[in-house]
Design a binder for these strands. Structure first.
Lengths: 316, 316
DNA sequence: GAAACGATTGGAAGCGCTTCCATGATTTGT
DNA sequence: ACAAATCATGGAAGCGCTTCCAATCGTTTC
């Protein structure tokens, strides 16, 4: 038993001869190691837990895709849960996951309830926060600055000559990513003279974006640009402009955020912020794998960056 | 120890008094049961494995979302893997998952390599195949008839007076779902007189759909309708028509498949086939839960149905 | 009031591995 | 050639639970 275990775990202290025999026996018997027993004995499960707000949304599931790829290559597997943007549900899922003794845990965002934060801190395993940045991670954060990206995107609109810009965002306290985008917008606005900054909130959906366009066009005679906090809303807005014959970007410039694949295809194509989400997931998984192999010299703040992609919706 | 276990598992044979004491002690000590040990002892992990072609695609991740919701409500958790449409990778993932002794496994589609099929058959756990139908499931299939849906969709185009229809599909043998859609199209075509059926293959992407439109318009002077095997291709095609000023549905009727959210918002809105994917996932999970609770009287072929949604892209 | 019974409870075995330890085999140094 | 060190191997303990069994206790029945 001891020797078989050594063979399976690739220990050095096994003679080539014995290894051969054991391997043959394993093949002949069709023996499949029981990883549950291994997990218990070795105090290491090879399971990684990941919690995202919603599995059905590309922005989040692409991160998971990246993680799954890297983890699978290292013999580890992913457990996944969806919080539905609820702190309460998220805590429940975290508790359920921790009872399964994962080797590490990934959570989306950097703003958590006190209960969640303390649970994660006491978990004793690597905790990766993703999709945003913070100076004060629970353990390690892998993301990009939603604040900076929003600043750069808004600056692009200003550079194009716009002096009145509407920032369209989701419900209050919906999540830290869009809050930081709004904060970046506000910050830049406060540094500019003769600049009119407005904010409108709507549902994060195509219809929400469309509604935002309708409201905005109805309430003021002159709107120069709308800076949507997500591509979903921006595309919804763009399509509403198509329907109403509003010239984009002639009458109204539009920007999004996320670079969904539709952003490049729609007419006019959409200026947005691109983030390599699959890469972010891969990076998170690589850090986890590294940490579990004993590397404690890893950075705790990992910026995967972003890229402003200017397309037709802002180019006159 | 025995008694504590009985309390935790809600056994009947514990006095209210003892239960009270144990519960209090658990709360005070902040004891968290180790589900790994439980899994080993009880020979039941409470883990469900799910394999989909790609996690980042809404069509598949929505199913996972539905499963995760139901499973979480029953104290079970999801392990997830992505095959990237490769039989080889899929088998690797299945093997890796089975070593973790999941209580059930979900796989996408009903056409599998011989190795995969036999591995699943011998696994000894409930196997759910999803997103299509077959008369010969490995164990249980939860899905809808891609064949029938395609027939109905094509019939709608014929009813609208179209006599030349292009079916746009993906690469050969890409997956059983789009193959069945093509088969449905062919079958209906073969029953109609004076009907011209063409097939074109392209990449399953917006750009692929656009390319299909370009090729089709260039090669023939009269095309009446294009029936795309997926909404992604259809939307790509529709946007290409926008760019070229091709009137949809006046000059060219277009249909998709999947009812992605964009289908309802795009201009003109897209006629497509709607499937409740989250519901499909929920149903699959409910069957799993039921089976694990010992119910063996469940149907092995579960049709969750589909709905043809006619929108502007086919309505003259 | 004694026998019989069912409801509770504690204890031990065991789930299938990993890991430590002791033993024996082999190699190295001198 | 011999002692010391190194390596390979089998065996046993133990990971933290569940579950079975036997023992205990309070009740009911006649």
């Amino acid at each position: 038993m001891g020797t078989v275990s050594r063979v399976l775990n690739g220990s050095v202290n096994v003679s080539a001869d014995t290894r051969q025999k054991v391997t043959a026996a394993i093949a002949e018997l069709g023996y499949v190691p029981n990883l549950v027993a291994r997990s218990l004995a070795a105090n290491r499960t090879g399971l990684i837990a990941a919690i995202i707000p919603a599995i059905g949304y590309t922005q989040h599931s692409e991160v998971i895709q990246g993680m799954a790829d890297v983890l699978h290559a290292h013999g580890m597997n992913l457990m996944i849960g969806a919080s539905g943007y609820s702190d309460e549900v998220e805590l429940q899922i975290i508790d359920a996951f921790l009872a399964r003794r994962p080797d590490a845990i990934y959570v989306t965002g950097v703003r958590h309830s006190e209960a969640i934060r303390s649970t994660l801190e006491r978990s004793g395993i690597p905790v990766i926060e993703g999709s945003n940045l913070t100076n004060n991670p629970i353990d390690t954060v892998v993301g990009y600055s939603n604040f900076d990206a929003s600043v750069e995107l808004t600056r692009l609109l200003i550079d194009r000559g716009h002096r009145r810009i509407w920032h369209v965002t989701g419900a209050k306290d919906f999540n830290d990513r869009i809050d930081d985008r709004l904060a970046g917008f506000h910050w830049l606005a406060s540094t500019c003279n003769g600049f009119e900054a407005d904010v409108i909130r709507c549902e994060n959906s195509f219809e929400g974006g469309a509604e935002a366009v309708r409201q905005t066009l109805a309430s003021v005679d002159k709107v120069e640009a709308m800076c949507f906090a997500t591509d979903v809303m921006a595309v919804g807005g763009l399509l509403e402009c198509q329907r109403r014959g509003v010239d984009v970007p002639g009458r109204l410039a539009i920007t999004g955020f996320d670079d969904l694949t539709i952003a490049a295809s729609i007419n006019p194509s959409l200026t947005t912020v691109k983030v390599d989400r699959v890469g972010l997931g891969r990076k998170a998984a690589e850090i986890i794998v590294d940490r579990l192999q004993g590397n404690n010299q890893l950075p705790h703040i990992v910026d995967v960056g972003f890229e402003i992609i200017e397309r037709q919706s802002t180019r006159q």
